[in-house]
């Protein structure tokens, strides 16, 4: 396989399930307990977390964090978007061999539909009493990029775009241009969206590589829609 722009890993968190590279990695079900990872597609991968109960976003994010046996105390003070994006990045990057990637060569380019409105509403509720600086700092959508950057010491290109639905075409164009012009060698790109009780994260790890599937808008759309 030739070396060109590839999607070398993906992670989806939606519907109380975490899927890496097309396979469930966590599946939680209160009736049956934690299940063994199971294959959910023809591609290699695992479903990490699945939780079939009707718990809220907050409980699911915490449950996923615990099931993945992560240890990062800052997680608890993050807002929902940052928790979601941070978890997706943990799963996306687990077991990826990135030691040789320079901090400045890892770009992060994210999108969502609701910016930081989920936290904006919570922050504004505090204003009439004592405005909360701990919430205010999360009233910007790109804070999740900051949290992922701090965790992994990534210092490369940043961008946060807002769109009604995942714009795979723009992602292919913009991230493609970052790699082509050598502004980055690797990029974490995708979607991290939360509003009230609905959420979805889909992250792609992209680089020039001989492994993975072609970095195209169509391939990203297919993975985003869970059709692979």
């Amino acid at each position: 396989m030739s070396i060109d722009k590839k999607i070398i890993a993906s992670c989806i968190i939606a519907d109380n399930t975490i899927v890496k590279n097309g396979v469930q990695v966590v599946r939680e079900d209160t009736n049956q307990g934690v299940q063994q990872p199971r294959r959910v597609s023809s591609r290699d991968g695992m479903e990490l977390v699945r939780d079939s109960t009707n718990q809220d976003v907050q409980s699911f994010l915490l449950s996923a964090y615990q099931q993945l046996q992560l240890n990062y105390p800052k997680f608890y003070k993050m807002d929902h978007i940052s928790k979601l994006g941070w978890l997706a990045a943990e799963v996306l990057l687990k077991e990826e061999q990135l030691q040789d990637v320079r901090a400045e060569d890892m770009a992060i380019v994210l999108q969502n539909a609701h910016a930081s409105l989920d936290t904006d509403v919570k922050y504004y509720e505090t204003v009439s009493d004592i405005a909360s600086p701990a919430l205010f700092v999360y009233t910007l959508p790109n804070i999740v990029i900051g949290e992922i950057s701090i965790r992994h010491k990534f210092k490369g290109e940043n961008a946060f775009f807002v769109a009604n639905t995942f714009d795979a075409t723009l992602t292919a164009q913009y991230v493609g241009s970052l790699l082509d012009r050598k502004s980055a060698t690797h990029c974490i790109c995708g979607w991290v969206d939360v509003l009230d009780e609905s959420y979805k994260a889909v992250l792609f790890l992209v680089a020039n590589s001989d492994k993975g599937i072609a970095f195209t808008a169509d391939n990203m759309r297919t993975i985003f829609n869970g059709e692979n």
């Binding site: 901090a103 400045e104 992060i108 600086p133 700092v137 804070i143 990029i145 900051g146 949290e147 950057s149 701090i150 992994h152 010491k153 990534f154 210092k155 490369g156 290109e157 940043n158 961008a159 502004s183």
Partner: peptide, 11 residues
């Protein structure tokens, strides 16, 4: 033009 991140602190 270029952008980047401190990877230090969110605020």
């Amino acid at each position: 033009g270029a952008t980047g991140n401190d990877a230090n602190h969110i605020s």
